[in-house]
Design a protein around this nucleic acid. Structure first.
Lengths: 211, 211
DNA sequence: AAAACAATACCCAATATAGGGTATGATTTG
DNA sequence: CAAATCATACCCTATATTGGGTATTGTTTT
């Protein structure tokens, strides 16, 4: 494998220099250029054709999240490893949702940078454990403790079917029971969920992950 | 800090032995006991009071996911690091959703185990990069590319309001326009989404993240 | 400037849904 | 074994929703 060509976005000059030095230790890395923010990143991509991008998040003018979005508009594959001093929940999740490849805390840079670059190029997602922990919490939060509405199994089946967009006649057909029976169940479901229409029931069910 | 007390669940005897050896290299680790599956894990917790649990996923009788659930029922804090040979998307996500602390591929055990244990105890989430990558994809998939149904702004507003569970009369009130107008918009929305009821529209909207 | 689109508003009729009942057999629970 | 719960099924009526129209006023686009 040839040299790994890297672009760097970082507003802090000191860190830019030390990253440059860090990458210079090995001649498998080549720092093509570095910029103090993501302005014009689209043209940088064309101009330099990098293998990987290292990107700070908190930068003036055009920050890392915005930069990441711009990159992803034109290239969905190039690894973008985010760097940050802050274990900033919001930014981390936002970066990940926008397709960041990995997320390294600056405090771990000296020990992890080289490994991280290789991992990113091999399809992995280099991540400081503290970052990973935030991500995990985000996930398990998102299927957080669902309220228990004490629905019976049959009621859950019916609510599920309603939630799939079926009218109650369709539900009756699908489950092979009479319309009236579906109605009875639905009445009870509405009582338990405290809703008064199908739309509300579907909305509540999907938003609260009830089933 | 004293010795780190560890419980191990792993059905493969060979691996159990090699893990035991691996932990034995450093006297900061103490393997309290190991079991071929998670049966009786609740009483093991009481009996041994471990600092950390290492757990295989694929085990007979009571597997790692089920074991993890049982642990989390009685203790939300103890780190549980999952081990697996398979980069099995489903299991990984399921484990994480059930509160796994970290997730190490067995192929990385010899190089990563010791670090992983420390990271887990320090509140981090040790994760093989390939695992992390799956997790990230899971997250960004969940806010994936939304189809464009070419709704106008007004239509989006109205669909949003419907999706919040409002009837169209309520929508009319909220937006300060006549019922009939809401109706007209809704008709067009239904056409564009190709649905034929509020429930279907709400369902499609929430499931496909349309707004 | 003509054509297309967006947002507004109304008409009618057929169907669906919501909320109020009652009832029965089967199963689960105390 | 009695009581409670679950799943089934039906009745009635008022209201909501859907699908089919037409129409006016601006605003964009061509």
């Amino acid at each position: 494998m040839g040299t790994i060509k890297i672009l760097l976005y970082e507003d802090n000059q000191e860190l830019r220099l030390s990253l440059s030095a860090l990458l210079g230790f090995s001649d498998e890395f080549k720092l093509l250029a570095s910029f103090p923010n993501c302005e014009g990143i689209e043209s940088h991509l064309k101009m330099f054709d990098p293998d990987l991008i290292l990107m700070d998040i908190d930068m003036p003018i055009v920050n890392g999240i915005e930069g990441l979005k711009r990159v992803r508009k034109v290239d969905n594959n190039i690894p973008v490893v985010m760097l940050t001093v802050f274990e900033d929940n919001k930014h981390i999740i936002e970066a990940i949702q926008n397709g960041a490849t990995g997320y390294i805390l600056k405090q771990h840079l000296s020990s992890r940078l080289s490994d991280a670059i290789h991992e990113a190029l091999e399809g992995g997602a280099p991540m400081s454990p503290l970052v990973a922990s935030l991500v995990l919490k985000h996930i398990s939060k998102s299927n957080r403790q669902k309220k228990d509405y004490q629905l019976t199994n049959r009621e859950k089946e019916i609510l599920q079917s309603l939630t799939d967009g079926n009218s109650y006649k369709m539900v009756a057909n699908i489950l092979g029971i009479a319309d009236g029976t579906v109605r009875t169940h639905i009445k009870r479901i509405y009582e338990k969920l405290d809703v008064h229409s199908q739309a509300e029931a579907v909305s509540k069910t999907l938003k609260e992950n009830i089933i």
